[in-house]
């Protein structure tokens, strides 16, 4: 549920966990980002950083500038200033990613895992089975069939949790057990009900079945998309995965290597939760593509 009054829970002397609800839903996450945006705009002295997550915001603060009680009072007032969630709009960019589905690199990673760690069902086939899909073609159609909401950032520099905005495209999957020791950089995976692009070659647990040549973080800040920040995503961004063939994948990869790739970003949109809810009411959530 989404709480009427948020809970403020101390995390030592420098952090406060603000719990806005206890459910994993788009609405709760939209509230999180609406409140986070208000906190940022308010520029409250002593509030240092925010980690907006699925249903919580971790607030870090400087106890020499603001007390725990004052954070609670000021941030609590901002939460109350949001009358109805329905009236909220958030700035939301749409970022397109070229994706090679059922690619050779995630397959090689899977083979390596089977050889060295444990035998398991091949990730794309597991996703087809667990989600009652007909075949790999439908998996690709379903996964690339909707926009994803950037629900949270973190865990690994650059990593974001993506939530499908169309219930017909929700894919769920168990996580690797034990986890992988490595994952190809920019592999795309599904775990629980969330989707992620791996920012780098890191350990991982999501079922992987695709890869994008477009980076999502770049410490050298060479590509135009990273001039302002090394991490691409901001909370409230949306993502669309566009299936491409190997030739297109290689072309984009060359542009990335040359340092000339321009991420495809629409930076002029607002997300209205009222219109989103109205659209949801028109679809049959049980349908698949």
């Amino acid at each position: 549920m989404i709480y009427d009054e948020p809970r403020f829970l101390p995390g030592g002397d420098k952090f406060i966990e603000m719990e806005l609800g206890d459910e994993m839903s788009f609405d709760c996450n939209f509230l999180v980002h609406s409140v986070a945006a208000l906190i940022r705009q308010a520029k409250i002295k002593g509030i240092v950083e925010l980690v907006p997550e699925l249903s919580t915001i971790m607030i870090s603060y400087d106890g020499d500038q603001i007390s725990f009680a004052d954070v609670v009072r000021e941030v609590g007032a901002l939460r109350r200033s949001i009358g109805s969630l329905e009236d909220q709009e958030l700035d939301s960019r749409l970022i397109y990613f070229p994706v090679l589905y059922v690619d050779p690199w995630t397959r090689a990673c899977y083979d390596d895992y089977c050889a060295k760690i444990a035998k398991k069902e091949w990730d794309p086939e597991l996703l087809v089975r667990v989600n009652n899909l007909a075949n790999l073609q439908q998996l690709i159609r379903v996964h690339s069939g909707c926009e994803y909401w950037v629900a949270a950032l973190g865990f690994w520099p650059g990593l974001a949790s993506h939530m499908p905005l169309d219930p017909r495209c929700v894919l769920t999957a168990p996580k690797y057990n034990p986890p992988r020791t490595w994952t190809p950089k920019q592999a795309i995976g599904v775990g629980g009900g969330l989707c992620a692009i791996y920012p780098d070659q890191t350990p991982g647990g999501y079922q992987i079945f695709a890869r994008t040549p477009a980076p999502i973080w770049e410490p050298t800040q060479t590509l135009p998309a990273f001039k302002q920040s090394l991490a691409l995503f901001r909370p409230g961004d949306r993502v669309r995965f566009v299936p491409v063939d190997r030739e297109e994948y290689d072309y984009v990869e060359r542009k990335v290597t040359e340092g000339t790739y321009q991420h495809v970003v629409s930076d002029f949109q607002k997300f209205s939760i009222k219109r989103y809810h109205a659209w949801l009411a028109t679809i049959d959530p049980k349908e698949r593509f």
Partner: peptide, 10 residues
Amino acid sequence: TIDHGYPIGA
């Protein structure tokens, strides 16, 4: 629990 932020020192 649902993924959430971790305080340093947690």
